[in-house]
Amino acid sequence: MTTEITDKDTLLQNLLSRVEALEADVSGDKLTLGVMRGDLDYTIATFIIALGAAAYDMEVDLFFTFWATSALRDPKKTAKKGLLDKMFGIMLPRGSRKLPLSKMQMAGMGPVMIKSVMKMRGAQSLEELMAQAADMGIRIHVCTMSMDIMGIKKEELIDYPHMDFVGVGTFVDMFQNSKQCWFM
């Protein structure tokens, strides 16, 4: 009798610890977006999707890498740079307002036209979307290697309340714990 109870207890303990391990491993109500393009249209889409998910009470993590890091530059800020980094800095868009379109760029006319049409139709600007994302607690994780390559410094980035600086290991951990992960 005693041994039987002990066996049941052991069985129960085993099951409980297995359930705990499974629960710890289950992906939460989270969305992770890998953001790479750095085009105005893709970046707008990123923030609209992120805000939509946040409306559903999903936690949203954005991993900004490569060209997308330019979208986070603040044109009013400057940083000390070497020659190569300076050259990159001149060639890359200086912030969200300077992003090109992936299609119909038309030597800079495209973004101007899209922005005026968006305003006409009552769509929010990228800057307004980003401000809302900040309010909704959407997190931005900036790829440090991309920053090194593009010569982008922390001091020249926008004041975003939920921003940190990470590597690919962090991105992997984020999407492992997410219901969905898309690469934009």
Binding site: C143, T144, D148, D164, F165, G167, V168, G169, D173
Partner: peptide, 15 residues
């Protein structure tokens, strides 16, 4: 020398 390593190793250790 990569600042991202701190976040990466923190999360990797957790996993």
């Amino acid at each position: 020398s990569d600042e991202g390593t701190m976040s990466d190793i923190t999360r990797w250790c957790g996993k």
